[in-house]
């Protein structure tokens, strides 16, 4: 149910029913409402239109709107499932759900594969990995020679690209992360377990009867 269908709902675009979002995710209704407090804060930081644009997303990530970042852009694009150039509340909750500690590991692996498959070809290609490595080096001011970058790429593909076709497919990725579980650490946000205590003000703005939670 969208917010325009009920007089009791907040009048903002994309604010889906917390009960519905809770039923589709690992979040309780209270947690969805707490996430709305976070969403409101991010989505009003530049333009108060109830939607998160790329600039607002970067501002929330880096506390600095001028910081262009390949990875932040990629995450934004994956959150923006409807490819509208903005993230609505439903997109936000469903995307963050993947990062919930209780979400299925397979969903996290799948999301991470999409994240690194920059050109959406269904494969993580060597050129994409190189592009990401270079972006990381620029971001971190870490200095590595071209030769070292190529050595890291060689080593990575030797380990991950089992069929030696020069690219990593979904099955190879699943296998690779199972042997390198630390790569999945970024896919779990412990904050999501305590979201109601991080944003306690949701209680004052709650629209859902306690009995419904």
């Amino acid at each position: 149910m969208g917010c325009f269908q009920s007089a009791q709902r907040r009048q903002c675009p994309g604010h889906e029913d917390p009960l519905l979002l809770s039923s589709q995710t690992a979040f309780t209704v209270s947690e969805v409402e707490a996430l709305f407090e976070l969403f409101k804060s991010i989505s009003s930081s530049v333009i108060d239109d109830g939607l998160i644009n790329k600039e607002e997303f970067q501002l929330a990530l880096f506390k600095n709107r001028k910081k262009e970042n390949l990875f932040a852009n990629r995450i934004f694009d994956l959150f923006d499932v409807k490819q509208k150039g903005v993230i609505d509340f439903g997109d936000f909750v469903r995307a963050l759900n993947v990062f919930h500690p209780n979400s299925p590991h397979e969903d996290k692996v799948d999301f991470s594969f999409k994240l690194y498959d920059l050109d959406n070809t269904g494969f993580i290609e060597r050129l994409e990995v190189k592009q990401m490595l270079i972006a990381l080096l620029c971001e971190s001011e870490m200095k590595l020679s071209d030769e070292t970058v190529e050595t890291i790429l060689d080593k990575t593909f030797l380990d991950a690209d089992v069929n030696r076709d020069g690219k990593i497919d979904k099955e190879e990725w699943q296998n690779f992360v199972s042997r390198n579980p630390s790569l999945m650490k970024i896919m779990t946000l412990p904050y999501l377990r305590d979201i109601t205590t991080t944003f306690p003000s949701f209680v004052f703005n709650s629209e859902v009867d306690e009995i419904a939670t």
């Binding site: 880096f62 390949l70 990875f71 995450i75 990401m132 990381l136 971001e139 050595t151 390198n180 970024i186």
Partner: peptide, 24 residues
């Protein structure tokens, strides 16, 4: 860093650390 695989390095990017979204 030579001993690390590329994804270990990439996963250290600040742009992939969504935890900062929750910092006020």
């Amino acid at each position: 860093p030579v001993l690390m695989n590329a994804f270990e390095l990439i996963s250290t990017s600040q742009g992939l650390n969504l935890g900062t979204l929750f910092e006020k």
